[in-house]
Structures are given as structure tokens and as C-alpha cells.
């Protein structure tokens, strides 16, 4: 497979995963607008922005007012910023446009159905502004967009030949997921330290972002406590949005693609080491020690960044001298 094609597939899924995550964050935040206090909303907005590594538009958050109009005005501006802002490289629309641009580059290696679903998603959003989606049912827009993104991955799941191309699509998706989940957990612990008296809804919404609330409730309790929630999102092997789950998929896709490319051995080792540390070291940690937890998250995040560099260097932009012929 042509390096540029592999790179294109990798970035299609990275961008789409990023867009989907953005939608999910806004959707959950929007749900909170219905019944949380202004104070609580401020903190969840802060979590959201911190996890994306972005400054909210207009600087620091913090409405000192118990003013609901103000709260909605804020939400309007911030939603626009996250969704349509052209200067925000990671805005949902920009991510979808970038995914589609990558797809255009590799159209000859993806099926028509995949292209069409992505193209329609893009065309449907291209000319929208926040005023078009702002209504009683703003959440619907984000739900529908996520559905379309899942639709794309569903088509890929059901139609792609499981060769290297497929595995690059998987790699992009799960490298992205591992990164945004570590960032989200880190932001959570920054805004809501576990030593402080916790508000359940702050931890419930965290689970919701990761599609984990139902499973968590079944396995644990309806008691949304910091320790078990973090543990679940980091190390559960069956939860599709856990870090451990993402690492497992990264490793197995790397196993396949590196059969042909020994240069990637280092990347495989790296992913394996992090997964192993979650299996063997993580259970022994002190759940109350946020500093240690965040250090572990930092290790995972670093490893993901390095993984991305490894993949770029071994498959996409390698030196000619390093290449077997």
C-alpha cells in the first residue's frame, strides 16, 4: 500500500474520531444545561475546554452571575467555537472537512459507500452556522452528527478488506481515542480533585461522555465515585472507550502492519509496555492519590504521542536509506 494512502486512512479516522468526541462533549454539556446550576456548568465547561487544550473564546470562563440568560449566551458562543469556528483547527466542522479532504486523496482505496457517507456528512454541514442549529433541540444536531460518523465506521467495518488499509484506519481511530480519553481524565482530576467532596453528576457525566454509564452501573453501583469511575475508564478491557481497550486495538493493528515493516518494532513495544503497566501496575495504585494517577495518565499520553511519531516515521515519511527494496 502506498504510504500516502496509509497516511490518508490514518488521518481520516483520527479526524472523524476527534469530531465524534467533540460532538459527544457538547451533547453531554448541552444536556447539563437543562438542570445544572450556573456554577456547576462553569466547571463542566472548564473540564471540556481543558481536555481539548483550548482557551475558551474571550479568555477565562467564570460567570459570577446567577443569570440564566448569560449562561445561555455563553453556551451559544462556546458551542459555535467548538462546532463551526474556522480558526479552531479542531472544531467539529474543520475536523470533518479535514477527514473528507483526506478521503478525497485516497478515494481510490476506499469504497464508494464510505466516500458517499462522509461526503454527505460534509455537504450537510458545510454551510451551517450555530444560528441554524440553535433551538430547543440543539442536542439533536450533535446526536445526528455522531450517528453519521458511526455510520461511516460501520460501513468501513462491514465493507473493507482487512488488509493494511483497514489497520491504518483502526490505528488512527484508537490512537486518537486513547489521547482524548487521557486528556479528558486528566482535566477531570484537575477540575474535580477526588479528595474534594464530589458531586455525583460531575462523575456521571464523565461516564456518559465515554458511553460507560450503563455498564458502570451494572458492574459497580449507582454510586459515581471518583476512584472506581477513573479505574473503569482507564483499565476496563471491555469498555470500548477505555484507554486499555484503545491500547489493545492499537497493539493488534500494529502487529499486522509491522509484519511487513520491522521498523515499527519500537512502536509495538511502546504500546505493549503501556498496556502491560495498566494491567500490572495500575491495580496497585492508591486510588486517592491524584498526583500518581495523573502521572500514569501522562505516561500514556506521552506514549501515544510517540506512537504517532513512530507510525509517521516508519510508514509515511521514512528515509530512503532505511528502506528495503
Amino acid at each position: 500500500m502506498l504510504s500516502r494512502n496509509a497516511q490518508g486512512l490514518y488521518w481520516i479516522s483520527r479526524y472523524l474520531e476527534r469530531a465524534g468526541h467533540g460532538c459527544r462533549l457538547v451533547q453531554i454539556q448541552y444536556r447539563a444545561l437543562q438542570d445544572r446550576t450556573v456554577d456547576e456548568l462553569d466547571r463542566t465547561w472548564a473540564r471540556l475546554y481543558l481536555s481539548l487544550g483550548r482557551e475558551p473564546l474571550g479568555g477565562r470562563l467564570g460567570s459570577n452571575l446567577d443569570d440564566e440568560d448569560f449562561m445561555f449566551a455563553d453556551a451559544y458562543t462556546l458551542t459555535d467555537d467548538l462546532t463551526f469556528e474556522s480558526d479552531n483547527a479542531d472544531s467539529i466542522r474543520n475536523c470533518i472537512a479535514a477527514a473528507r479532504e483526506n478521503a478525497r486523496q485516497v478515494r481510490n482505496v476506499i469504497g464508494n459507500e464510505m466516500w458517499t457517507s462522509l461526503n454527505l456528512l460534509y455537504l450537510g454541514m458545510r454551510d451551517l452556522g450555530v444560528e441554524d442549529i440553535w433551538s430547543d433541540r440543539t442536542g439533536n444536531f450533535f446526536v445526528n452528527t455522531q450517528d453519521s460518523i458511526r455510520g461511516f465506521f460501520g460501513i468501513a467495518d462491514n465493507s473493507m478488506y482487512r488488509d493494511n488499509g483497514w489497520h491504518f484506519l483502526q490505528l488512527g481511530r484508537f490512537v486518537e481515542r486513547a489521547q482524548h480519553m487521557t486528556a479528558l481524565l486528566d482535566a477531570q482530576l484537575e477540575i474535580f480533585p477526588s479528595a474534594r467532596r464530589h458531586v455525583e453528576s460531575d462523575w456521571r457525566s464523565l461516564l456518559q461522555i465515554a458511553f460507560a454509564r450503563g455498564a458502570y452501573s451494572r458492574l459497580n453501583s449507582l454510586d459515581f465515585k471518583p476512584g472506581p469511575v477513573v479505574d473503569f475508564l482507564v483499565s476496563d478491557r471491555l469498555l470500548s472507550h477505555s484507554i486499555r481497550y484503545a491500547l489493545e486495538h492499537i497493539s493488534s493493528s500494529l502487529d499486522v502492519v509491522s509484519e511487513q515493516r520491522p521498523l515499527a518494532v519500537e512502536a509495538r513495544r511502546r504500546a505493549g509496555r503501556v498496556a502491560a503497566s495498566l494491567d500490572y501496575d495500575w491495580p496497585n495504585r492508591d486510588p486517592g492519590d491524584d498526583t500518581a494517577t495523573r502521572a500514569t495518565l501522562g505516561t500514556v499520553s506521552n506514549a501515544c504521542r510517540r506512537l504517532n511519531e513512530d507510525i509517521e516515521a516508519s510508514y509515511f515519511n521514512y528515509e530512503i536509506e532505511d528502506s528495503p527494496r
Binding site: M1, L2, S3, R4, N5, A6, N108, N164, F168, V257, Q260, R261, Y315, F316, Y318, I320, S323, P324, R325
Partner: peptide, 26 residues
């Protein structure tokens, strides 16, 4: 067949190669 751009190809020792994930291919 592969759809390539100029930057996917290179010439080495008088032969043309394309850059694939498993190395250069003539």
C-alpha cells in the same frame, strides 16, 4: 492500480520507485 502523486515517486539508480508502507516498490 495505485494513484500516485509526484511526491510518492522517486528515482534511484535509474529506476523509478514508489513509497509504500512496506518499503520502496519498483
Amino acid at each position: 492500480v495505485e494513484l500516485v502523486q509526484g511526491r510518492d515517486l522517486l528515482v534511484h539508480d535509474g529506476f523509478v520507485y514508489m513509497r509504500t508502507i512496506s518499503g520502496l516498490r519498483k
